Structures are given as structure tokens and as C-alpha cells.
Amino acid sequence: MGSLFGTLLVGPLGRAFPVSLTLAGIMALWGVAVVGLSLTPGVAPALAVMFAGGLIWGPYTALETTLLQRGVPSGEHGRLFGVRAMLLGPAAPLGTALGGLLLIGLRAEWVIALSGLGCVLGALAALPWLRRRGEERADAAAG
């Protein structure tokens, strides 16, 4: 349900903020929600956290597609989306396998928290690059 309502935020977010920075923010907030999930004491709080996580993540795919379509010449879209699908296809099974291996030595709560922390760190690592890229685009548009 959260994701369904989150998709309603695509337009307002896309107009209010640079799409690349919005994506980094969504990724970081999703990571915070996942870490929060690892700390929830029961089913009802976990459902509330997952609703919030869905609300946060809901706009991601549409905004990511928008960013990719704007940033790549239209003649390259087929290649871009093909490579993207090729890379993302194995990501879920590999992530699941890694999570399973981690469960051998760690409690489930820790594995979930590490996953969320990875999202936050990934967003923070991408932020300088996204800012620099945004400044380059602004300079190109001005000059």
C-alpha cells in the first residue's frame, strides 16, 4: 500500500528537486526504513515501517527511468535499458544468496540492518558524484 501511495509523489518530487538527488535521498531513506525494520518489536510496528518504506520507495523506479531517459540520447535508450536489465536481473538472486550466507553467522535482525546500512552508504557515496554531475549540467545549460 505504501508503494501505491508513494507513486503519487513522482510528479511533485520530480518538479521540486533534481531527480538525481531525489533518487539518492530515496535510497538513503529506504535504508533508514530497513534499519528501522530490524529494530521493530512486533508485527504491527513492522507493518508500519514497511508502509513507510513503500511510501519512500514508491517513486524510485519512475524517477530513475526519467533520469535515464533524460540523460541518454534517445538512440541509445535500447542499449541502455538492455544493459540495465542485464545487470539488475541477477542482482536480486545474488543479494538473496549473500543474505543467506550472512545468516549462517549473524542473526536475521543484523542481516536486515546491514542491508539498510548498505543502502544509506551507497546513497552517501553517490551523492558527491551526483552533485558534481548536476553542476556540470547547470554550467552547460548556462554557457
Results as ranks from 00 to 15, higher is better:
Met1Tyr: 09
Met1Val: 11
Phe5Ile: 11
Gly6Ile: 11
Pro18Asp: 12
Pro18Phe: 02
Val19Asn: 00
Thr22Gln: 04
Thr22Asp: 03
Leu23Pro: 05
Ala24Val: 04
Gly25Asn: 02
Ala28Arg: 01
Ala28Val: 04
Ala28Ile: 06
Trp30Gln: 09
Trp30His: 09
Gly31Ala: 05
Val32Tyr: 02
Ala33Val: 10
Val34Cys: 03
Val34Ile: 15
Ser38Asn: 09
Ser38Asp: 02
Leu39Val: 01
Pro41Lys: 02
Gly42Cys: 12
Val43Gly: 01
Val43Ser: 05
Ala44Leu: 14
Ala44Met: 13
Ala44Arg: 11
Ala48Trp: 05
Met50Ala: 09
Phe51His: 07
Ala52His: 06
Gly54Gln: 13
Leu55Ser: 01
Leu55Pro: 03
Gly58Ile: 04
Pro59Tyr: 06
Tyr60Ser: 10
Tyr60Thr: 08
Ala62Thr: 14
Leu63Asn: 10
Leu63Lys: 06
Leu63Gln: 07
Glu64Ser: 15
Glu64Gly: 10
Thr66Glu: 14
Leu68Glu: 14
Gln69Pro: 01
Arg70Gly: 11
Gly71Ala: 15
Gly71Ser: 15
Glu76Cys: 02
His77Met: 05
Leu80Met: 15
Gly82His: 10
Val83Glu: 11
Arg84Asn: 14
Arg84Lys: 14
Leu87Lys: 11
Pro90Ile: 12
Ala92Trp: 07
Ala92Thr: 12
Pro93Asp: 08
Thr96Pro: 04
Leu98Pro: 06
Leu102Met: 13
Glu109Ile: 00
Val111Ala: 09
Val111Asn: 10
Ala113Thr: 06
Cys119Arg: 03
Val120Lys: 00
Gly122Val: 08
Ala125Tyr: 03
Leu127Asp: 02
Arg131Leu: 15
Arg131Tyr: 04
Arg132Asp: 10
Asp139Pro: 00
Ala142Ser: 12
